[in-house]
Design a protein around this nucleic acid. Structure first.
Lengths: 345, 345
DNA sequence: CTGAAAGCGCTAACAA
DNA sequence: TTGTTAGCGCTTTCAG
């Protein structure tokens, strides 16, 4: 009773403060908090009163360390860009009523380039902080790093690895290419994604399939890599558009929207009009695609639904359900806006 | 050396495994990991090799518990909806090169209705897991709960509380109302936000100011509350639009976009055309406002910039900087799209 | 230069 | 019904 009027000495009250104040042991306080049996009504009430008085909340960290189950689901991303943000919304909406909390983690951006961020995040949070994880666009195989259930969205791996949720990349890319063909384009360039990601490989495959179906092969000169990254898209876009007009592509298919939007900007800087001089189509249908100038034609992935689905699969895994659909593939859809049109005459 | 070929026994390796494998004490391993002085080059290398071999990553939880500084910044939200997602993007972009990690936390949605989620999150994560926090739209006063620096975005409090970042709500709302006036509207209804949030109060104030500037007062019957929540917007919207045509509002200003978008839907269900029969304007300019039918006129807050700014302020606080601008207000901007037009003749 | 030991805040046996 | 005692995985004095 040294200072009853100074509840939280430095910052926040701990369970020890509560115990001291209530005149019981910390174990008893813990029992009260966690609703364990074997605490007298009167004691419980007194403890609860002190807790309320002190504004005590148990430290997630400390209890996680000791417990096996934490009631927290982790969402592991490299960065919060439009793609993962949409996913996150979907996950968050699906969370209502489950009793779980959400902890979305983006590792230090300084190191996220050296792939392996997902393994690192998983190791650092797994088992102790989170009960299960949704990993967004992992670069590498996730092999039960942390001993917790994992669902990968847009995974690196095939069917062997963890549970996955993705969309039909081959079909989506093929449809995009066919859209350009049907507009009359002949010289179509491809700005590929990250070669280490399965989705990028599949989109290229779909792109090539559209050519193959017409007995064609894409020109090697038109197959570029942009790593899903606007910064990396800049140079190849500039290169493509610097070609003489009669050899320049009349359409560019970028493997994701944010790269496509950068292409739009490069084209504008180079004095090319979209879609009159150049058609551009993206992939993902992130919200930004709608507000670009001009609005971007793209292939829509049901991003929020993919998030909700990933959560559903994870919860099933978590509840030890037997019949879990471990690989869910959602459909894609062509969205035609103003960035695609017939090629210049 | 019981099982050298079975590094991670159950899930993940701990510092003890590394120590055993390297033939040193855990203290030494800890020193190596954290780059402390006083470890022989050879020892260090051996430990590093084992770490690499075992794929060891220190548990964020365990180290947080012991350390004071964790290198993690927390973003506390009630839910990941479009508003907080935009903020998060801005925060994430600003994080590059700072060396901090991001942990965004959404408390269990089951309890987030009983206000106080921010206090709870702050207590549970503060001091132990995160070095500082950005709290999005706190309902209540944040009074140094966790003893860590806090920046509130769209805060409840006035200048007395924690550092804040917001936008000019009065001005923004006033501009929205004036836009409607200038189109010729007379019967303008207001769908207010959460009465406990300062931003909602200020938007109402701005709305009234526009009337006052014209020597008018809004009709009491047209002043509704929708709590920034689409679900709560439904009933009052329906009520307003059920009035006989000559007493029905010709324009509705909803205090945030997602409520306004719901109004759009209600209007459609009731057979009213927007903007021919009814003009609707929102607030925030979340990405969704662009893709509604019709695209929503709104007042834009620079959401991502607000996120980046909040991070900047927090980092300044964290670095113990003296001259920190504790209250930053960013400008708003009217965005006219297709949901507003002159009233029916 | 290295290790033993204490302890961060909390939970979970096990005793009392 | 309650308290005592071990830890969870890690960092940090402080001896050796």
């Amino acid at each position: 009773m040294t200072a009853p009027d100074q509840p939280a000495r430095e910052g926040r009250a701990t369970i020890v403060d509560v115990a001291r104040e209530a005149g019981v042991s910390v174990a008893t306080v813990s029992k009260v908090i966690n609703g364990r049996y074997g605490v007298a009504e009167a004691t419980s009430e007194r403890v609860l009163a002190v807790i309320d008085d002190l504004g005590y909340e148990s430290s997630l960290i400390a209890s996680s360390l000791r417990r096996k189950r934490t009631g927290v689901i982790g969402v592991l991303v490299a960065e919060f860009e439009p793609y993962s943000a949409e996913l996150l919304k979907g996950i968050s909406y699906g969370l209502a009523g489950t009793g779980y909390e959400l902890l979305a983690h983006a590792g230090s951006t300084d190191t996220h380039l050296r792939s392996g961020w997902e393994r690192r995040s998983l190791s650092r949070l797994g088992r102790t902080l989170i009960d299960g994880a949704i990993v967004v666009t992992p670069t590498m195989v996730i092999n039960d790093q942390a001993g917790i259930p994992v669902v990968a969205v847009d995974p690196h791996t095939g069917p062997e690895g963890p549970a996955t949720v993705d969309s039909d990349n081959i079909h989506g890319a093929r449809v995009a290419a066919e859209h350009l063909f049907s507009l009359g384009h002949q010289r179509i360039a491809f700005l590929g994604g990250r070669p280490d990601l399965r989705s990028a490989q599949l989109r290229e495959e779909g792109f090539r399939a559209a050519f193959a179906a017409r007995g064609l092969t894409p020109e090697a000169e038109f197959m570029k890599v942009a790593g899903y990254d606007p910064e990396l898209a800049e140079a190849p876009a500039r290169e493509l558009l610097s070609l003489p007009a009669d050899r320049r592509p009349t359409a560019i298919f970028a493997a994701n929207d944010i790269s496509a939007i950068r292409v739009l900007r490069v084209a504008e800087q180079m004095g090319l009009r979209v879609p009159e001089d150049l058609s551009v189509i993206g992939y993902d249908n992130v919200p930004d695609a709608m507000s670009s100038t001009p609005p971007l034609s793209t292939v829509a992935q049901p991003l929020q639904e993919m998030g909700t689905t990933a959560l559903r699969v994870l919860l099933a895994l978590l509840s030890g359900q037997q019949e879990v659909e471990r690989h869910v593939r959602l459909p894609t859809e062509l969205v035609v806006r103003a960035s695609t049109a017939p090629p210049p005459a």
